[in-house]
Design a protein around this nucleic acid. Structure first.
Length: 521
RNA sequence: GGGCCGCUAGCUCAAUUGGCAGAGCAACUGACUCUUAAUCAGUAGGUUGUAGGUUCGAUUCCUACGCGGCUCACCA
């Protein structure tokens, strides 16, 4: 026979077989790729509606159905066959027999493969084993699958293929579909939550002449007509606060941020953030709002306030509230050199704590992370917190009292200007949210930017840049405002019990697949 | 970027000290009109991630590279 052309053929014999079958189907007079199937129900709908109907009920009231989906299994018995049809969400069994569909249609059915998309019409009945099944009277090919699906029993377990070919993962792994359905519900719930509270959803630039609002390295791109470099945003923060200046007193945005950093189970270069800003409020107001948001969200999505996360059980019934200093003291491992709350108020105390911590770290081998004692007092406290406490914060905990050096956009604490009015929410050892009272003093903001510039000159590529227009905006007067960011991907991980961020991002960034070999073909 | 691990048929996995590369599912041929991991009989399917090296002989040992996973660093 003449060899069919095309790149697919080189991938294996099964593809050639399926192409041949399609030729035969066409020869039988069927359209290979019809544009429509006139369905009136789905597998999910049938199972929901008639799942409780008895055999007798279905016999007396013959329920006619037309549905379509993907063939997931076929069990042939000569002149009859059972198969399962998936609508994406659920599978419904179908029963095709020669005397019910007729000889021509049965020929078509015999040319179908697992993976094909088909439509069937018939009526519902229950089999001997009491499974709700469609007694098919006619089946139609809607699209042929040339590539075989992964094995029906073990499914697809190669994670690389799962991420690279997510479509395939979605076809054969029901939990994956579930996770992304949940992600959609989470985002929808959040929108409803803020809409109900008078917030306006806005969209601010993803491409910015200067990447600000966070401390991170940006991606660079170029606009040809203006001949300028642009940065993919690392945060929407400074734009959202410009809107507060403009009188949009409550705004939120759910959108992508891009950070040119490493990839891990908790980091994807593009990730989704919720940011919201509320005028005439401070960070304490947001703490209350955050608790309310999380409790109602978890209740809605998980049906209760306790969720399983790996080996952990997370309870959203109670949110802990600690200062950074308190957290360091509480989770300090070695009782013989544990610092006191008071000692961590002053630089000397922080330094001796850092020194003691590093001694503990040496004693503990590689189990404890060391801190860089060259840091100044504020960042050193932050480093101590990360090394000592962060991973221990399993149950929801607000951490407050951040050093000003770590927070160039936050308002100083009235009583202690070395600290800012800020909190972060930690759950399962992950930072989930970050909020603060926004710095609205343009002079202080300029000073903070200057400090950042010095760090940048010192080689810190993540330090913030000077944003003159942002200072100009603040100079028109910004009301006292509180703002918060919530990492949607990590939140989704928690609520879908996913241990990798890649399991909640449909198409996580992967190194491109290497092209098949050389130029000789 | 560092460390550790993995890569064998379309999929899921085997292969003894280095000695003919196998099974199940999927596919193909045949039987079978209530099966559900359908069953039964038979057939085909491989440059063992890539490139080198050691060896009479490499899936197995060594080196480099590629891709991925976990982990550490950085961050959210």
């Amino acid at each position: 026979m003449t060899e069919p052309t095309g790149p697919l053929l080189s991938e294996g014999d099964q593809i050639a077989q399926r192409r041949k079958k399609l030729e035969q189907i066409i020869a039988l007079g069927h359209a290979p790729y019809p544009s429509k199937f006139d369905w009136n129900t789905t597998a999910t709908e049938i199972l929901n509606t008639y799942g409780s109907f008895s055999k007798e009920q279905l016999e007396t009231t013959k329920i006619a159905v037309r549905l379509c989906g993907r063939l997931m299994t076929i069990r042939g018995h000569g002149k009859a066959a059972f198969a399962h049809l998936s609508d994406g969400a659920k599978r419904l069994q179908i029963y095709v027999r020669l005397d019910a569909v007729g000889e021509d249609n049965f020929k078509l059915f015999q040319l179908l493969d697992i993976g094909d998309l088909i439509g069937v019409e018939g009526y519902l009945f229950r089999t001997k084993t009491n499974e709700l099944t469609v007694h098919v009277e006619k089946c139609t090919l809607l699209a042929k699958a040339f590539l075989p699906l992964p094995e029906k029993w073990h499914g697809l377990s190669d994670v690389e293929i799962r991420y690279r070919q997510r479509y395939l993962d979605l076809i054969v792994t029901p939990e994956v579909r579930e996770a992304f359905v949940t992600r959609g519900r989470i985002i929808r719930f959040i929108r409803g939550f803020f809409d109900a509270r008078g917030y306006i959803e806005v969209e601010t630039p993803m491409m910015q002449p200067m990447a600000g609002g966070a401390l991170a390295r940006p991606f660079v791109t170029h606009h040809n007509a203006l001949d300028i470099d642009l940065y993919l945003r690392i945060a929407p923060e400074l734009y959202l606060k410009r809107l507060i200046v403009g009188g949009l007193n409550r705004v939120y945005e759910i959108n992508r941020n891009f950070r040119n950093e490493g990839i891990s189970t908790r980091h994807n270069p593009e990730f989704t953030m919720l940011e919201f800003y509320q005028a005439y409020s401070d960070y304490r107001d947001l703490m209350a709002l955050t608790e309310e948001l999380f409790r109602s969200l978890v209740q809605e999505v998980c049906g209760g306030l306790r969720v399983e996360y790996g080996d952990l059980e997370i309870s959203f019934e109670k949110f802990d509230c600690l200062t950074m200093r308190e957290a360091v003291v509480r989770f300090w491992k070695n009782p013989s050199n544990r610092p006191t709350l008071e000692s961590l108020r002053v630089e000397a105390g922080v330094r001796s704590a850092a020194n003691a911590h590093n001694q503990n770290a040496v004693a503990a081998g590689s189990a404890l992370e060391r801190v860089d004692e060259r840091l100044s007092a504020g960042p050193l406290l932050g480093a101590l917190f990360e090394a000592v406490a962060e991973k221990e914060l399993i149950q929801p905990a607000f951490i407050s009292e951040f050093p000003v050096e770590l927070s160039p956009l936050s308002k100083r604490n009235v009583d202690n200007p070395a600290m800012v009015d800020r909190f972060e929410l930690f759950i399962a050892g992950m930072e989930i949210a970050n909020a603060f009272s926004e710095l609205n003093d343009p002079l202080d903001q300029r000073d903070r930017f200057e400090q950042q510039l010095k760090q940048r000159e010192g080689g810190n590529e993540e330090a913030h840049r000077m944003d003159e227009d942002y200072i100009r905006a603040l100079s028109y007067g910004m009301p006292p405002t509180a703002g918060e960011g919530v990492g949607i991907d990590r939140l989704t991980m928690l609520l879908t019990n996913s241990k990798s961020i890649r399991d909640v991002i449909l198409f996580p960034l992967m190194r491109p697949e290497k092209k098949g070999s050389d130029s000789s073909e």
